[in-house]
Every structure is written in C-alpha cells, then in structure tokens.
Design a protein around this nucleic acid. Structure first.
Lengths: 235, 235
DNA sequence: GGTCGCATAATTGGATCCAATCTACAATTG
DNA sequence: CAATTGTAGATTGGATCCAATTATGCGACC
C-alpha cells in the first residue's frame, strides 16, 4: 500500500509523441511497470493519474484496461487498479512460455534469415556490450531476440512472443542484479547468432534453450535468496 | 462492406448476466465473432452498436478496445473497427502457437492430474459425441483440452493457451464442415485421455501433436479448396 | 468529359457530469 | 468492552456533450 512514486517525473519522461492521449498514458505506464519504477502492488487511482497526466479520467480508464489485458494490472473493484505482483512462481511461469514459444520462432526463422538480420543482430550485441542503462538493456535484449525470430513469417506467433518478452523485462532487473549487468549472457547471444548464420538449427535451438534455462535458474535463486516479499523494493 | 447482420438478434442472445454493460457488450461481440456470425471484414460502428445494445457509446468503445487487444478487431481510424479477417496463413499461425504451447501444458499437467479431471474429461468426450450444435462444440473441445492441461499449475501459461484455443474456434467451423461434424477427432481425444490416465507422457504428447497436425492439415486443405475469399461467407 | 477543390456529413477521441456501489470509520448499544 | 449499524467518503461505470479529423459527394473549371 505504498504511494505512487514521483508521478510527475513519470509523466514527463515519455519521449515519443503519441497520436492519442490514451496511447500516451498507456505507453508511459507500461514503461514504468516493466522497468520496475512502478512496483508490484502499487494501487493506481484513475483520478490521480488523470490529474498527473493533465487529461480526463477517460483516456486513463482505457489505458488501464489495455494494461489489464496485458496482465500488468489487476482491477480490484472500488480499490483501484493494482500493479500485478511478481514472484518466483510468476517468473517460472513466464519462462515456461518463453521456452515453448521461442524455439518455435527460431526454428521457423533461421532458414529465412538474411544478411540484414545478421548485421542487425551483431550490432545489437555490440550495443549491449556498451550499454550502461539497465532500462535500455531490456529493450536491446528483446530486439536481439526478435531480430533472430523475425523471419519466421508468422505474425501472430511473433506478436505473442514479443509481448511475452516485453513482460520478461520485469524480471530482467533481477537477472542483471545477480550477474553484474556488464555482460548478460553475451556468450549465448554470440553463439546463437553464429549458429543461425551457419543455418545450424539444432545447435541454435540448443543454445537458446540453454540460454533460457540459465536465466530462469539465475532468477529463481535470486528470488529464493531475497524472498519474493520486497519484489518491487528497489526502483 | 457488408451490413451488420441481425444486430438485434445478436444482442438478445446473451444468456449469462454480466455485471457491467461493457462486459455484456464484449462477451456478446466476442461470441459473435468467434462463432462466425460476424464475418471477417465486417465494420462495426460504435454508434450502431450503442443503439443496438441500448447503451451509450462508451461501454461499446471499451469493449471494442478489449477485443482489439485480443486480435479480433482492427481499428481503422474514421472507418470503424473491422472484424479481423481469417485466412489459411492465419490458421497456420494459430496452429503454430497451439503446437508450441499445448504440449508444454500437457507435459507439465499429466503428472498431477487426478481422478476428478479424468472424470470431467471423459464426460466432455461423451458430451461431444452427442452435441448437435457446432457452436457449443468449440466450447466443449476447449474445455476438454483445458481440463487435461489444468494441473500444470502455471496460470499464465494456461491463460495464454486458453485464449489461443478460444481464438481457434473461428477455424473450428471449417474443420467441422470438412469432417462432418459428428465426430471431431474423438479417437484422438480418447487416446489422449487414456495416455494421460496411464501417465504416459511421451505417448500423450505424441497423440496431441498428431491431433493438432491433423486438424491443421484439414483446415489448410479446406481453405485451399475454397479459397480464403469468402472466409466468413457461411454463418 | 475529366479532374481538382471545397463544403458537408460522418465518425471518433476526449471532457464533464451523474448515479450507484463499496469501504472505512465512528458512534451507539447490549 | 466488543459488536453492530449507520453515515460519510471515495471510487468506479455510464451518459451526454464538444472538438477535431477525415471521408465523400457535388460543383466548378480546365
């Protein structure tokens, strides 16, 4: 039951321009939740958000609904929308989904990947090497994975995978905290890229599965050590 | 550019009572789309829907947004929301997702299934044997699969699987039309249940994969024969 | 006859207002 | 002193109203 932190700061931050107010609110809140600035359990009252964003309650309502559909919020009647709690069980859940979806993406994508994708992936690896901000790290990691999957040619599968990956950003913070943020399984990333370039599908899948399993184990032990209680404790 | 068919009939049909008007509108429209009564490409104008449901445009708006998040609608600015088209490619896409998610569910669930679930699954098979209405068939099929997965103990994975299965109802009509609705892979269902009961995970997975592949192939050939054009042509 | 431009109509996003419902606290009574 | 009930506050769902943007149809001009 903690207060909403620095709401004004949140509002100001959104860089990209959005066509509608609803999109602006939704994007800002999603970033705040995924990046951990809005901790699990935080109640969001429509009235406060509306004032903070300088809009009416209506776009706020629609944005909250969208976020609820993305499982980032729970609507509690007459108590406000609360940010979904994260837990070790939840992390395992998300990983099970990734483990199911991503090999399917990679398998279908590898045969059709072209030079453009390989170049983009290599560049993303380099960016990750020299990115200090853990917030952007999640985005880079997501883009790297999605580039490798992008040639699968199945839009729904890719969309689902991308949204799952986006949700994973909430756990990535723990991963980084445990590993030291500097190198985040970059060896795995390089190995995946190399396997994809040589069209070695079984190897690529093997590396990917190992990559995911390692991350899952890291986060699990991290949660076990901390206890899930203060899940959102550090911003 | 066809007219919305029998909007009044749609509105009246919703049996269950819903707490809010938004939920009512959303449930009714989702049923209509999934069952094929609202064909792909049909434009839905907020004003018309609001009048038909006897509510303001606002709950309609929120319901449409929810359905958009479920990929059942596309928002076209100043043209209204149009029902997503279905196609052979889309069917393949949905099947790829099922093929990725459902074995993962089944694998995790089988060891923990109890008598209650086996009994429920067996009963659902019998119900499907004697169900004449293809509309309810989709629901029964969905419930059968979900019962077998229900002991997986991973709520997000299950939720994702269930929503994918729900979306699959749109294609199920074609499957039924091609096979003759009377028996819809009931042999597969019985075999899956038997394998689950004997805790034979590899066998259960094998049957499930075959089940999904068969259905995918059936729908693909059916689409190929018809051409995807009149996708929503028969209600 | 064809094409460009303007005016009108339609549609949506957003704001404000209203009603209904639930929570929480406090006063009162057994 | 505890339990219960009543009242006030807070919060949300819904309706109506307004503004902005765009599609469309008609007419004028080349």
């Amino acid at each position: 039951m903690q207060k909403i932190p620095d709401l004004a700061a949140l509002v100001a931050e959104t860089g990209g321009r959005h066509r509608t107010a609803t999109q602006h609110v939704e994007a800002t809140l999603r970033n705040a939740i995924l990046s951990g600035r809005l901790a699990g359990g935080t109640p969001l009252r429509q009235e406060d958000l509306a004032r903070a964003f300088g809009v009416s309650r209506m776009p706020v309502r629609e944005a909250l609904r969208q976020l609820e559909a993305q499982a980032l919020l729970d609507f509690v009647p007459h108590k406000g929308a609360v940010v979904t709690e994260i837990s070790a069980a939840d992390a395992a859940d998300t990983y099970a989904i990734r483990m199911a979806l991503e090999p399917a993406c990679l398998e279908r994508s590898v045969p059709h990947l072209a030079e453009a994708e390989f170049a983009a992936a290599a560049e993303l690896i380099e960016e990750m090497d020299s990115e200090p901000d853990p917030g952007r790290m999640g985005e880079l990691n997501r883009r790297f994975h999605m580039v490798l999957y992008s040639a699968a040619g199945q839009p729904k599968l890719l969309a689902l995978t991308e949204s799952t990956l986006a949700g994973f950003d909430r756990y990535l913070r723990f991963h980084l905290a445990a590993h030291g943020r500097a190198h985040m399984s970059q060896e795995d990333h390089r190995a995946m890229l190399a396997a994809a370039q040589s069209r070695d599908i079984p190897l690529a899948l093997h590396v990917l599965r190992g990559h995911l399993e390692t991350a899952a184990a890291t986060i699990a032990t991290f949660f076990a050590g901390r206890g899930g209680a203060d899940s959102g404790g550090f911003s």
